[in-house]
Design a protein around this nucleic acid. Structure first.
Lengths: 210, 210
DNA sequence: TAAATCCTGTGAATATTTTCACAGATAATA
DNA sequence: TATTATCTGTGAAAATATTCACAGGATTTA
C-alpha cells in the first residue's frame, strides 16, 4: 500500500468506516464482503478491492474481523490525526451543522464558528467557541484549524475562502453554489451544493424516463 | 443524442446550466469552452465533449451563444418538466432548505413540508404548506410530488423513505447517513451526508500529505 | 483575396474504474 | 482424513471517462 488510493475508493472506504462503527457498536465481530456490499449498496468485488488496497487480512471463512478492519481503514485513510474544523456563516445551515456534531464521534472536530453578525454571536448558544469573522485569520492559526466549512451567502463565499486559505487552511467544504478559486493547489476543496444536487436528481429522474 | 448521457456529464451539465443562468443575468451573450472550464474548474475538453453530447452548436469564432446553449441543456437534461419536491423533517436543516429556495429559480419547486411534531408545524411560518407526517402518502399523491428530501433523524429515515416510495415518489435526496434500501429500482436515490463528506475531506487532506 | 487567428467537434489514445472469474485458504462436516 | 462449502485477494477483461491533437469552419486583418 504505497501508491495513492483512487478517489472512489477513498469515498467508499469512508462510508465503510462509518458503517463499521455502527456495526461494531451492535456487537458484531465479523463481516463479509457480501454483507458490506449490501449495506452500502455497491458490489462485493468493489468492497474487496478497496479493502485489499489497504493490505491483506487473511481470509477466514467468516470474512473480515470488524475491529481490525476498521483500524486498518482508520490508518489507511490517515484518520489518526483528528482534524479540527471551523464553520464560517452561522445562519440556519451553519447552526444546524454546529449542532449535529454527535454523529461524527471525534473523527473531525468542529472547534470554532464565525459570523460577521456580532449581535447574533451573542445571542447564539453553542458548545463551541464563536468569533466575529474578522478574527478568522488569527483563530485559524492559533487553534490549528485545518478544515473550513463555508455556509455563508454566495456573495461572501470567495472572500471567506480567501481568508481561510490565507490563514493556512488545508481543506474546504463549500456549501455555496460558488465555484471557489484557489491559486493554492495545497488546498482541497469539496463542493456540496444542495440545489445543484437537487437539479442533478431532477435530471436523473427525467433521463431515466426517456 | 439518443443514447444516454454518462453520469459525470449530467453532473457537469447541471453545474454548467446554473453557471449559464448567472452569466446570462450578467448580460453576457457568448461564452467559449475555455471560459466555462475556468469557471467550473474542469478541462475545456470536457466541457466541449459534454456539450457535444447534446448536439451541435455551430462554431463561430466567439464560442457558444449563452441563450441557445442554456436552452439545449435545459432540454437535454429533461428540465422542461419542473419537478415538485417535498421536505420531510423540519428541524434546523430541513427548515434551512425550505428557506433557501430562491436560488433555484423554479427548476425544482419545494411545495410541501412534513414533520411528525405537530406543535412545531403550527409554530413555523413558511411560504410552503406544512403537513403532519402521517399525511405523506395522501399529499404526495394528490399534489403530484416527484422528489422527496429526507432530513429526519437517522432512526426515522428508512421509514420515511418507505412511505415516500409507497406513495410513488421518483427520487430521494437523502441527508441522513443511513443507506436507504429500496426494492424499487424506479426510485433514484442521492445521498448527501455532511459528515461523510467531512470525513472524505479529512482523508483526502491526510493522503495528500503522505 | 490571402493569411492569420480563434473557435468547436471529435476520432483515437490514455487513464481510470469496475467487474469477472477463479485460485487458494479455511472451516465445517462426514 | 476426505469432501464440501464459504470466503478473500487479484490478475485480466471489460466498461467508462478523460485527454490529446488536429481538421475544418468562421471571422478578422492585411
Amino acid at each position: 500500500m504505497r501508491e495513492k488510493l483512487p478517489e472512489p475508493s477513498i469515498q467508499r472506504l469512508c462510508l465503510l468506516y462509518r458503517l463499521l462503527s455502527r456495526v461494531e457498536k451492535e456487537g458484531r465481530l465479523t463481516v463479509n464482503s457480501g454483507f458490506l456490499a449490501e449495506q452500502l449498496n455497491v458490489k462485493a468485488t468493489s468492497i474487496r478491492r478497496d479493502i485489499s488496497l489497504l493490505g491483506e487480512f487473511g481470509n477466514t471463512i467468516a470474512g473480515y474481523e470488524v475491529q481490525p478492519l476498521k483500524q486498518a481503514i482508520f490508518k489507511g485513510l490517515g484518520l489518526e490525526s483528528v482534524k479540527r474544523a471551523c464553520i464560517v456563516g452561522l445562519g440556519r445551515l451553519g447552526a444546524s451543522i454546529l449542532n449535529y456534531q454527535g454523529f461524527l464521534m471525534g473523527d473531525v472536530m468542529v472547534v470554532a464558528g464565525f459570523d460577521s453578525n456580532i449581535n447574533m454571536l451573542e445571542m447564539m448558544e453553542s458548545a463551541v467557541s464563536l468569533y466575529p469573522a474578522y478574527q478568522i485569520d488569527e483563530i485559524v492559526r492559533s487553534r490549528n484549524i485545518e478544515i473550513g466549512i463555508i455556509t455563508v451567502p454566495m456573495k461572501a463565499a470567495q472572500g471567506v475562502a480567501d481568508k481561510l486559505i490565507q490563514a493556512g487552511i488545508k481543506g474546504i467544504l463549500n456549501f455555496t453554489p460558488v465555484v471557489l478559486k484557489s491559486d493554492n493547489s495545497r488546498v482541497t476543496i469539496r463542493n456540496l451544493d444542495f440545489f445543484s444536487e437537487l437539479l442533478i436528481l431532477s435530471a436523473a429522474i427525467s433521463l431515466k424516463e426517456r
